[in-house]
């Protein structure tokens, strides 16, 4: 990995957004993901390399550290912000085909549930791992998921719920998606959800943390 890509990876890992950002303290006054990504592209680094050898390794490290309780939600949010800033530079290259995302992930918090912090963390982590993410927001019905799937064939669906009362809706949505599009893979997550519940409702993956979703997607798309 070249030095610039390593620095980009560090910026994502530690949540260094840009030169002006004071966070993290040990990187104060240094260029961030914003400037370094622009510089890498200007120097001719292939956009695909910026994504897969710079941004994604950084995000993977964050995901692992979150799983191991070495960082918490705010630090992940800072990393995600650094990531989204860098991705703005890559967007034209995604559109031109010079950089390719690995697949599409459609995510939403299920009908009746308005919690979105956990769902947002997953969306950010998945996007940072090289996937196109379609975030349908909160309180999402089966119909909305199915419409999004029709527009994005082959996408994997992620369902989030924080309330025990909305786990019922997770089951209904899973059933309706599977009835309409049996091949669709569905990942579920959220505080009240478990591996057993996942098996019971016929979903394809339960992940206790965002990195688990990334690992599931990597298995399916690689």
């Amino acid at each position: 990995m070249n030095e610039l890509l390593e620095k980009i990876s560090d910026c994502i890992e530690f949540g260094k957004i840009n030169l002006a950002s004071p966070y993290p303290p040990q990187m104060k006054g240094l260029e961030g993901a914003d400037e370094l990504t622009a510089k890498a592209l200007q120097e001719g680094t292939p956009p695909q390399d910026v994504l897969t050898k710079g941004l994604m390794p950084g995000m993977e490290k964050v995901g692992r550290k979150f799983r191991e309780n070495k960082v918490f939600v705010p630090q992940v949010l800072m990393s995600a912000k650094a990531m989204s800033t860098a991705l703005l530079h890559l967007k034209p290259h995604f559109l031109s085909g010079a950089a390719k995302q690995k697949g599409t992930f459609i995510i939403g918090t299920v009908l009746g549930d308005l919690h979105d912090i956990g769902k947002n963390l997953v969306a950010m982590m998945v996007e940072g791992s090289g996937y196109k993410v379609i975030d349908l927001g909160t309180d999402v019905s089966a119909e909305t998921f199915i419409e999004a799937l029709e527009e994005n064939p082959g996408a994997v669906v992620g369902l989030s719920a924080l309330l025990t009362t909305t786990m019922v809706n997770m089951q209904k949505i899973t059933n309706e998606i599977k009835a309409a599009m049996p091949e669709t893979l569905i990942a579920i997550g959220g505080a009240p959800v478990s591996e057993e519940f996942c098996e019971k409702i016929g979903a394809d993956n339960y992940s206790a943390d965002p990195q688990g979703v990334v690992e599931f997607l990597n298995q399916k798309f690689l």
Binding site: S21, P22, Y23, P24, P25, V71, F72, V73, P74, Q75
Partner: peptide, 14 residues
Amino acid sequence: SILGFTRYDLPEPF
């Protein structure tokens, strides 16, 4: 502590 820091090492921008 929920933010993941202590009052003695709370960095900017937090």
